[in-house]
């Protein structure tokens, strides 16, 4: 029985470490695309964490909304930015000095 508790604690600790590492890198990186991919990975890991604290509904919502739909939305916005950057247009934020 204590075996289960110990292993569970190890698992929780590893998930927490992974989350912290993902979050740190997510905030530090200067590559927007990498940040988006890290955000998706973070959402999936966070869903695992919600499972571990016994909140499967939030895990479901996090996986579907946080990782799936938001990730797709970010990729979409990234694509728009990149297309504009690739063309000769100036970015909206550079329009006014």
């Amino acid at each position: 029985m204590t075996d289960v508790v110990t292993t569970g604690l190890l698992l929780d600790g590893l998930i927490a470490l992974l989350l912290a590492g993902l979050a740190f890198r997510l905030l530090r990186t200067r590559d927007l695309f990498e940040a988006i991919m890290l955000f998706v990975a973070y959402g999936l890991t966070l869903a695992l964490a919600w499972i571990r604290v016994g909140a499967p509904d939030i895990a479901l919502a996090e996986a579907a909304l946080g990782a799936g739909v938001t990730g797709a939305l970010f990729l979409n916005a990234w694509h728009r930015l990149a297309v504009r950057a690739g063309s000769d247009d100036r970015l909206p934020m550079e329009a006014d000095p």
Partner: peptide
């Protein structure tokens, strides 16, 4: 749901993630 959303993510990437920008 994980399995289904993995599909969504990757298809969105394939359709939206590539840009022929000079950079």
């Amino acid at each position: 749901i994980f399995a289904l959303l993995a599909v969504v993510m990757t298809v969105v990437f394939v359709k939206r993630g590539w840009v022929r920008a000079p950079g």
